[in-house]
Design a protein around this nucleic acid. Structure first.
Lengths: 217, 217
DNA sequence: TGTACATCAGTGAACGCGCGTTCACTGATGTAC
DNA sequence: TGTACATCAGTGAACGCGCGTTCACTGATGTAC
């Protein structure tokens, strides 16, 4: 249907990743099956092996795409925050930047809980996280942008340079903890507004923890 | 073998929970099977249904025991901290209390990663977290003791009373985030010492976030 | 431009497994008289 | 104390399913001459 329709099916590889993503989104990574994905595309189950070594490899691809989307979302939200604070001083802008990364991370987890789970999934279902164990936490792009956000806090004078080291990892820990709690159902908020307020308070808490004396943005 | 050996097997219910815990510990909740547990006890697979409605119910029991152990560990570590700071002033003691809860939580996750996963596990494997969604985060006892720890920070003057509300939940978010990252392999530390230091810095970060000006303990 | 050939994305059926769960049952235990 | 009966924790075999993966294959596409 789309542009590149060569061969028998066309772009089966990408179609598989897309369909797998949908299936995971709908039913979770636990119950996802290769056969379902193939059937949904009207293709024999076997055809998947032309593009992926195993079910696990396909799920890894799903996780990879998820990580990329998370990174994109963070970058988009940061750009948005920058636009909204065009006239602000460096302090305001740095804080807005930082908070935008946190809001984006949590928003992604809430919008895509099952994908989020696969991204940091238990072994056996997805070794994605493990394969990347030697790398900085979260997705590479996300980690980079968080590091940049903390850099900005320093250069704007919101936090002292002595608090820079490890600051991004600590902030990530907070964002990830909140996201996990919401996704796992371990944290409960009666309304979306309550959850949103908890997040805002958590962002202030995080800034304070990083050594900031100003919190407004 | 133990005291209460009545009926055919004796205490099959508890034996099942124990064995299931071992199997989960060894292989994870994903690959755990009823049949394995039964076989390991030399009992027919069917016999489990005399004590549990389903595999899921057994896993829930495993998660419950895990939550209890986590609570115990936190209480034990806090008592230990109290003993070690007998001569300290209220401030020192309150901070020691608080940090002990965090260290205990993380230590449990590191010692029992698979049990920890089942406790906050994905749907389908264990609905434990979901069943308790209406309750405070983490296990009830753990949540209570964390609340108490924050209360002490307030009454010792380490943090202002205006920072009490939600403080325990935010602290839990940090502890849980760190634990999850380690368990999931999303956070990587080359040595145990490095991880320990990261945790200590994270505890100071958390106290600062809660509004504390003193951090030593 | 047409033909012969190599490539490779797909098919369809089957393998083989382990699983949770159900069935009809058995035999040990506890209890009433 | 002994016997008849109810209870219920266990057995063993089977059901039925869905799964990942493998096999030998087919037929469409791309390429060399």
């Amino acid at each position: 249907m789309t542009a590149k329709a060569t061969y028998h099916h066309g772009d089966l590889r990408n179609a598989l990743v897309e369909t797998a993503t949908e299936l995971v989104r709908a039913g979770g990574g636990e119950s996802f099956s290769l056969r379902d994905a193939a059937a949904k595309l009207g293709v024999s189950a076997n055809a998947t092996y032309r593009h992926f070594d195993s079910k696990s490899a396909l799920l890894t691809a799903v996780a990879d795409v998820g990580a990329e989307k998370l990174g994109q979302k963070m970058r988009r939200k940061v750009a948005e925050a920058e636009r909204q604070n065009e006239r602000g001083d460096a302090t305001t802008l740095a804080i807005a930047w930082f908070k935008a990364t946190g809001r984006a991370y949590v928003a992604f987890a809430i919008e895509e809980p099952e994908i989020f789970r696969v991204m940091y999934g238990p072994h056996g279902v997805c070794q994605y996280a493990r394969a990347r164990a030697g790398q900085p936490p979260a997705d590479p792009t996300g980690a980079l942008i968080l590091g940049e956000a903390v850099d900005r806090l320093v250069s704007a004078g919101v936090i002292g340079p002595e608090n820079r080291a490890g600051g991004d990892v600590r902030a990530w820990t907070v964002f990830h903890g909140f996201s996990s709690a919401v996704v796992e159902g371990a944290s409960y908020f009666p309304t979306k507004a309550a959850r949103g307020q908890a997040l805002e308070e958590l962002l202030d808490f995080t800034l304070r923890g990083l050594g900031a004396t100003m919190l407004t943005a």
